[in-house]
């Protein structure tokens, strides 16, 4: 079997507060293969962005990795020395954030910001750097690249700023691109343009991507495989079509049913009662128990092991409703 580009194994991350230590990520295990786009969905506060931060080694100061490993191209990032991180961050793995205005420096020109990465990570001459930067700007669909090279972020529209951020992420030809809600702050038509650009990148660059979003529409248009996260755990994993058409976990089912669309007009929308438990109020057992319409006694006692299905080995779910053989027990 091929070794995946990125493999995360039994990763636990916790936050240290004055009153104690709280686990924010628990037993996160997944992998991203070459040229694969993996989506992570879940409500706010489920640990989607924290997972990305752990991979990039940019966890908040009061957070630490308790156990587990993050293996990227054969090296364990958890044990990496700080100075070696520079070869990974921004070079092999790049990150695209939600709000392009805050991700860009308002005082530097677009050209300077995009080429900065090249200056840092390559030995190219000034002319070559400029040439590559302009070529990159064209590739991400920025018009009049030469003129834009000297513009400042505030002179650009939201869609163009996001293209600049994408250009910054791509210019070093990373092996893995992590995009955290990259289209959430954009209008629908601009969102469509940016998603189209990501699809193009997926095809031409053969890069692997991790796409974090709470928007199923976005996940649906680009991902090959989907992880569903809830309260710091992965509760379901599978191919995009399988998750959308045949969700197993009550949480995944709820999230999909809550999406409004024209076919549900006149009917009340399905809702998941309650909210994601805050970090300090998480108990043992399955964290979804209190909000689950199908909870059983065992749910509050232990977190369920992951179950795979005979019909589809790719899909796994962590729910007591499914026994080891993947037959509904209740």
């Amino acid at each position: 079997m091929n070794t995946p580009l990125l493999a995360i194994d039994h990763l636990d991350v916790s936050f240290q507060f004055n009153d104690g230590k709280y686990k924010a990520l628990e037993n996160i295990t997944f992998s991203v293969a070459d040229n694969e786009v993996v989506g992570i969905v879940g409500e706010s506060g489920c640990g989607k962005s924290l997972t990305a931060q752990a991979i990039l080694g940019i966890l908040p100061e009061n957070a630490c990795i308790d156990q587990g490993s993050i293996t990227f191209k054969g090296a364990n990032l958890v044990e990496l020395e700080e100075r070696k991180w520079e070869d990974v961050r921004g070079k092999s793995i790049s990150m695209i954030f939600q709000e392009p205005m805050t991700a860009l420096n308002p005082l530097l020109t677009i050209g300077k910001q995009i080429s900065e990465v090249l200056k840092k990570h390559t030995n190219l001459s000034k002319a070559e750097i400029r040439e590559r930067t302009i070529a990159m700007m064209r590739e991400v669909g920025l018009p009049r690249a030469e003129a834009l090279y000297k513009s400042y972020p505030h002179q650009l529209s939201g869609g163009m700023r996001q293209r600049v951020v994408i250009a910054m992420a791509l210019i070093v030809q990373p092996d893995l691109i992590i995009a955290d809600e990259p289209t959430t702050a954009l209008d629908v038509t601009i969102q469509a343009q940016i998603l189209e650009l990501f699809k193009q990148i997926k095809e031409t660059r053969k890069a692997s991507m991790m796409f974090i979003s709470h928007d199923w529409g976005v996940i649906r248009s680009i991902c090959d495989r989907v992880l569903v996260m809830y309260a710091g755990r992965i509760v379901e994993e599978g191919s995009l079509s399988e998750i959308l058409q045949n969700p197993k976990h009550p949480y995944t089912k709820g999230l999909i049913e809550a999406i409004p669309d024209h076919r549900k007009r006149g009917k009340a929308l399905f809702t998941i009662p309650g909210k994601v438990p805050p970090l300090k109020e998480r108990k043992g057992g399955c964290p979804f128990t209190d909000r689950c319409s199908r909870r059983m006694n065992i749910c509050a006692e232990s977190f369920p092991d992951s179950v795979t299905f005979d019909s589809n080995k790719e899909q796994t779910v962590n729910c007591h409703l499914y026994s080891k053989e993947g037959v509904l027990t209740s």
């Binding site: 709470h214 999230l255 998941i272």
Partner: peptide, 11 residues
């Protein structure tokens, strides 16, 4: 709002 909360508010 998140999709699950959004559904509650719309209802």
């Amino acid at each position: 709002l998140d999709v699950s909360v959004q559904a509650q508010i719309l209802n």
